[in-house]
Computed example of a mutant assay.
Amino acid sequence: MTPTITLVRGDITRQSADAIVNAANSSLLGGGGVDGAIHRRGGPEILAACRDLRASRYGKGLPTGRAAATTAGRLDARWVIHTVGPVYQGPGSDASLLASCYRESLRVADELGARTVAFPAVSAGAYGWPMDDAARIAVETVRATETAVEEVRFVLFDERAFTAFAAYVDASR
């Protein structure tokens, strides 16, 4: 099934969804941008669950392109799905790793039974991926991924990101 894609301009930590995707760093221990906001608003339960993941399955950190779930703490969600996007290194950067973030997050959402998933623009902030290309990869990957998720909501922080994602959502209808 192909999920319905909706776009929201706003703060992902204010969303109500089964799962909220965190554009995490590999340490899983919080950081800046979306990652820091999710950890701050979600509370210490998320950090504790991330520490458990590090102690068990991801001792060296979560690899780029992979995803893992924790509690959502105080967020209006059941789970946070953490995914590590690639850092943009210029032309020739590995777009397959960015696409993998979306595929792997949807795979984890399916394992959890999540039906609504809120995504940020993974790698398009501090990791420097050009917004138009990040939007194209995100929308194309979600459309091409077989999933039981019913709604994928891209929650975009500013007008530039919203406009970029809207162009690809509209073009692929």
Rank of each mutant, 00 (worst) to 15 (best):
Q15T: 12
P3E: 00
A49S: 09
G65K: 10
R143L: 15
T4R: 15
D11M: 02
P91D: 13
A72S: 13
V34E: 04
L75G: 02
S172H: 11
G10R: 01
V149D: 07
V21K: 02
A124R: 00
S96H: 14
V87T: 15
A99E: 08
L106W: 05
A135E: 01
T6K: 15
L106F: 07
G92D: 06
A148H: 10
P44L: 03
D76K: 14
G33V: 02
P130Q: 09
L75S: 03
S26F: 05
E150G: 09
I20L: 13
G10Y: 05
R54C: 12
F165Q: 14
R74A: 10
G30W: 01
Q15S: 15
R74N: 01
V80P: 06
A166V: 05
V108F: 01
D18C: 08
R14M: 08
G92K: 07
S26M: 10
T141H: 13
L106M: 06
A77K: 07
L75H: 11
E104R: 12
A126W: 11
D110A: 08
D158Y: 03
R9E: 13
D35I: 00
T163N: 15
I20Y: 06
L156A: 02
G113S: 10
G33K: 06
A134L: 05
P3V: 01
A24T: 07
S93P: 00
L29R: 11
T71W: 06
Q15R: 11
T147Q: 07
V34W: 01
G113W: 03
R41W: 12
D52F: 01
R40T: 11
A49V: 09
R66Q: 14
P63D: 02
R173I: 08
D52S: 11
R14H: 13
P44Y: 05
A77M: 01
F154V: 00
A68S: 08
I46N: 10
L53Y: 02
S96M: 08
P44T: 11
F165T: 00
L7S: 06
V139E: 03
T147D: 05
A49G: 14
R107F: 00
P120T: 01
Q15A: 08
T13M: 06
A161H: 14
R153M: 13
D52I: 04
L106I: 04
T70H: 12
A68P: 04
A171Q: 12
A167Q: 15
A126Y: 04
F157G: 01
Y88V: 09
R54H: 00
G30R: 13
G32L: 02
T141W: 09
P130I: 00
C50P: 07
D110Y: 07
V142Y: 02
C50F: 06
R136E: 13
R9N: 03
V34M: 10
G36K: 07
V122H: 08
S123P: 06
T2L: 14
T163P: 10
A69S: 15
M1Y: 05
V108T: 13
R9A: 00
E140D: 04
G65F: 01
A138F: 10
G61K: 15
L106D: 08
T13Y: 11
A19F: 07
I5Q: 14
E146Q: 09
D35L: 13
G43H: 11
I38Q: 10
P91Y: 03
A109E: 10
T116P: 12
R40V: 05
A37S: 06
D52E: 14
S16Q: 14
T4G: 04
A161F: 04
R14P: 00
A17N: 02
V142S: 12
